[in-house]
């Protein structure tokens, strides 16, 4: 019984969301607002138990680790948000997260986004026993990297030779994006099939 109720609720909500494809309607609105409300409530529950109880209440009051009063105090500064006069208080917790994040991120970005990528780029011809087609691919790959980088130059006018190179760069970019697009399509369709299977199989039992 509970199984039928639960799939029926799920199915009605699924259909309500799908109805948006036709046009905005009261069913979609009900589902949409319900979804927003529930999702915020869900986050509150998660944050209360996994965050507040786990990191604040238990360590400070049960385990007596008073050091965590300091971050709690910093976090409480967010409450300055409620009055215009005290809204500047929220800058402190934000400044702390930002400073730590930005500083820590610099060497990390260099390492992960530049050095490791460079390493992969330098060894395009280093495959042992590389064939003619491999060399052609490598050259084309480098051409793609260089022209696309040139496209992103902000201080070079896109005219003359630079203009042509940047144009080739944008063509490379579009082919690259097309590939990402094509790769995604099948995944999305299988998601849709998943939803239809829920409706026709789990709920209506039309297909077994």
């Amino acid at each position: 019984m509970i199984n039928i109720i639960q799939t029926t609720i799920g199915a009605i909500l699924t259909l309500s969301i799908f109805s948006f494809l036709y046009k905005d309607n009261p069913l979609y609105r009900i589902a949409e607002h319900l979804l927003i409300g529930i999702s915020v409530g869900y986050i509150i529950g998660q944050q209360y138990h996994m965050g507040f109880m786990n990191y604040v209440i238990t360590p400070i009051f049960k385990e007596g680790q008073l050091i965590y009063l300091i971050p709690s105090f910093i976090g409480l500064m967010y409450l300055g948000f409620f009055s215009q006069k005290t809204s500047w208080l929220i800058r402190f917790p934000i400044a702390i997260s930002l400073g730590i994040g930005a500083g820590y991120g610099i060497p990390y970005t260099f390492q992960a986004s530049i050095f490791i990528q460079l390493r992969e780029t330098l060894t395009v011809f280093s495959e042992p026993g590389i064939t003619g087609f491999g060399i052609f691919s490598g050259v084309l790959f480098l051409l793609g990297v260089f022209t696309a980088i040139v496209y992103f130059f902000f201080s070079w006018k896109h005219r003359g030779v630079v203009g042509i190179v940047a144009k080739v760069g944008i063509y490379f970019l579009m082919i690259g994006f097309g590939a990402s697009f094509g790769l995604t399509v099948m995944g999305r369709i299988s998601l849709l099939i998943g939803r239809f299977l829920f409706l026709f199989k789990d709920w209506l039992h039309i297909i077994s």
Partner: peptide, 10 residues
Amino acid sequence: SDRVAGISGL
């Protein structure tokens, strides 16, 4: 595709 539904391409 039942088994695979929702995986490929994600």
